[in-house]
Design a protein around this nucleic acid. Structure first.
Length: 273
DNA sequence: CTTTTTCCCTGGACGC
DNA sequence: TGCGTCCAGGGAAAAA
């Protein structure tokens, strides 16, 4: 499940490969991908476009073109971009293919078909993203105080608040649990009830968890791969996610599993308070 | 307004 | 071996 670190890894890999390249041919094989827009219309819009940058905002990939169009890709659960230079076919759940002007191909694969491709004009992009996303947690100017403002007055569980992309952009189920463990905070705590010291710990926990994920090229549990086909290594560093019954790396208490915000949630019942 | 629930999808794990 | 059931979860939309 690609979250901020996985999407950032994909972005960093694709950017140098795609900048300056022209989309010679675009095939969209699954109409769900562009719904409700006709995939043929999207393919026609993208054909001939020249990439000037591959950016990221939250979990969105942003392909910017010379013309001023942008392609917004969300990988959701199992979306996967593969860059193939040798013309070797890529197998399995291919939903779209882009042929570039250097002869290489970008394959979009997605087992569960939740991912989306959306074409916008650059002047529409900010409003689209602003309506859905909060601050970038790794931006230098994002402070514990900013985080506190996003959580103030909210009564839902901390875990659920972190999954809400308007709280902080890019955090998903894995990094929410990992950040809460680092901050020593109980995921069930009411989101608006943190004191300044706890907000600071959560701010630091979020950044440390996300940065660790980026350093390890993301976490590969099943489907996620980088565009060159390699796996991430962050899954080996998980402190609590998916580790029910194993000892807490900090205090040795067995990790507990519960359900919060509709998602599996792992935490240490002793040192997260 | 905020929060919760339902839905979309497929394949892997599990019970019998 | 095969079949049924459950589970994984990001975000949109509907419901509460």
């Amino acid at each position: 499940m690609p979250e901020l670190p996985e999407v950032e890894t994909v972005r960093a890999s694709l950017n140098p490969r795609l900048v300056g390249r022209r989309f010679e041919d675009v095939e969209i094989l699954d109409s769900r991908l562009t719904r409700p827009v006709d995939p043929a219309e999207v393919a026609a819009e993208l054909t001939g476009e020249v990439v000037v940058a591959v950016d990221r905002r939250g979990k969105y990939l942003i392909f910017r073109f010379e013309s001023g169009l942008v392609l917004l890709i969300h990988l959701r659960m199992t979306g996967n971009l593969v860059h193939s230079r040798n013309g070797a076919p890529v197998e399995g759940h291919v939903r779209a293919v882009v042929r570039l002007d250097d002869g290489s191909d970008v394959f979009y694969r997605d087992v569960r078909r939740f991912g989306t491709w959306l074409v916008l004009r650059a002047d529409e992009l900010d409003a689209y993203l602003a309506a859905r996303l909060g601050r970038e947690p790794l931006e230098g100017s994002f402070s514990a105080r900013d985080l506190g403002e996003r959580l103030a007055g909210r009564k839902l569980p901390l875990k659920a608040a972190l999954l809400d992309q308007r709280t902080v952009a890019g955090v998903g189920n894995i990094y929410a649990d990992e950040a809460l463990w680092r901050a020593r905070l109980d995921p069930a705590r009411p989101a608006g009830a943190l004191d300044p010291r706890e907000l600071s710990a959560l701010h630091r926990g979020l950044r440390r968890a996300l940065e660790a994920g980026i350093e390890r090229q993301g976490a590969t549990l099943r489907d996620y791969r980088t565009p060159d086909g390699s796996s991430g290594a962050m899954q080996r560093e998980f402190k609590v996610y998916g580790r029910g019954g194993e000892p807490c790396p900090r205090c040795g208490t067995p990790i507990a599993k519960t359900r919060l915000g509709g998602r599996g949630t792992w935490f240490c019942p002793a040192c997260q308070v």
